[in-house]
Write a protein that binds this DNA or RNA. Structure first.
Lengths: 255, 255
DNA sequence: AAGTGGTCTAGACCACCGA
DNA sequence: CGGTGGTCTAGACCACTTC
């Protein structure tokens, strides 16, 4: 339980704010394991020489940010993001089955969806993607091409770029083994955890390259760009997904 | 400062939770004015016979919900929603001007956009809309048809339904005066405040009815359904907006 | 100076979980 | 049963706004 409380920096930042940052660092740098609870509030308060309420406030901020989850009687754990608002899961060939219950919902794809990687290569990414992933001009990326199949029909055509340095381990895998959700695979093969993401949706029209999705040239297409970040807020995945716009529907609550 | 603390209902609901609900009711039923601060924490704690921290927690929940805003030294006020995540503002004919600064952003439309109502009538709404607005079969609605113009070009074609009972005052207005943002007009003419909304986006293709938008039959169209609610969570507006999908782009942060 | 919300403390008691 | 987080209290001191 290393404490690096730089007691000189406490000028105007509230203590609970400093605690939040400290805790976030403990998560992103792996000092707190994802498999066991973080130290209990009482211990943190004692160790850090602050009040219990202050510790609770710092922890609560990370709960609100979705990085921690608390269980009464068990402890506080690091979470995997649920991505409940992702537009990604709005792609459906069939009418929405509206199965609103289901506690532990799967993050990436819908229930009957599975992905298959059809190509993998190491390249220098296009400049736009290089900038977003914050790579130098000479840094290579692993590029995956993937088709998601939903209920027997090709539903999504995806191109994914990953920084070579972080994802070298992925090259050891047989393509046939890179199946289903990608984020658990990232974690398993390369120790890379996704903490959050940003998605942008655009409407396009199908070109001849979209033929694999069963679309005719000119059909409307939804293009989804996702940039995913780790717990330190560093971008580590760029993903472009294209799918039929017909039947796509996305809902958001606003204030 | 009427207090209706039904002290028999306190079974398992935390006090701060009960306070939150009580405060929300004070807002939605107009017992707390939108023009002056709500009673100070210390007074609420004294009046309600609870601790200051508990009052603060109840208030903080409403701040998180976007219904209240606090100013140190001045007091706590009821807010108008900002609708910062609305997909509505994602319609742009021109390339995004990316003017990221600008503190007080306007809620409804983009900067150079204005709306004009071209039709208004009192009708029995379609069943689907009647259900959503929770109207009885014999209750009428005011239907507005509106065209939003952005940078000289028709950009959005909208149809809006409003419960007759709440919006009767709108019939007094000359159509030419119903211009610009609608929500301030709702408040001014009918005392109706919008607290939140739910938006659903779908992709369609243009029909001959979309010709006013300068679209050819078959062009991709974005259709946005918005249901807006008052502070008591009652639906009071149903709005369907259609616009060219070309150039539409919507971004969301997810966890 | 008076009044507001913002931070922080030190303690109490409770509800829930697991061994 | 002991340990965890969840709720609540009563107070202190501070920072900011308004008069």
């Amino acid at each position: 339980m290393k404490i690096t409380m730089s007691s000189s920096t406490d000028s105007r930042v509230p203590i609970y704010q400093q605690l939040r940052d400290q805790f976030a660092k403990n998560i992103s740098e792996g000092r707190w394991k994802t498999t066991e609870p973080i130290p209990p509030e009482t211990e943190l308060a004692r160790t850090l020489k602050v009040s219990l309420g202050t510790v609770r406030k710092g922890i609560q901020m990370l709960v609100d940010d979705g990085l921690l989850i608390r269980y009464r009687g068990r402890g506080t754990f690091i979470t995997r993001p649920a991505f409940r608002d992702s537009m990604y899961r709005s792609f459906r060939r069939s009418p929405r089955s509206e199965q609103g219950s289901a506690e532990g919902y799967e993050p990436d794809e819908g229930q009957t969806t599975s992905g298959r990687v059809i190509d993998r290569k190491v390249t220098l990414p296009p400049e736009q993607i290089r900038d977003i992933l914050r790579l130098r001009a000479d840094q290579e990326a692993i590029q995956l091409v993937r088709i998601s199949v939903s209920e027997g029909m090709p539903a999504l055509f995806e191109t994914i770029w990953l920084p070579f340095d972080r994802f070298e381990g992925l090259l050891e895998y047989d393509l046939a083994d890179i199946v289903g959700l990608l984020y658990p695979i990232y974690e398993q093969c390369c120790g890379q955890l996704i903490a959050s993401a940003s998605e942008t949706l655009m409407i396009d029209v199908a070109t001849s390259e979209d033929a694999e999705l069963g679309l005719k040239v000119g059909d409307p297409v939804v293009e989804l760009i996702r940039v995913a970040y780790d717990y330190a807020n560093e971008p580590i995945e760029y993903r472009r997904s294209r799918g039929a716009a017909q039947g796509f529907s996305y809902k958001v609550e606003i204030r």
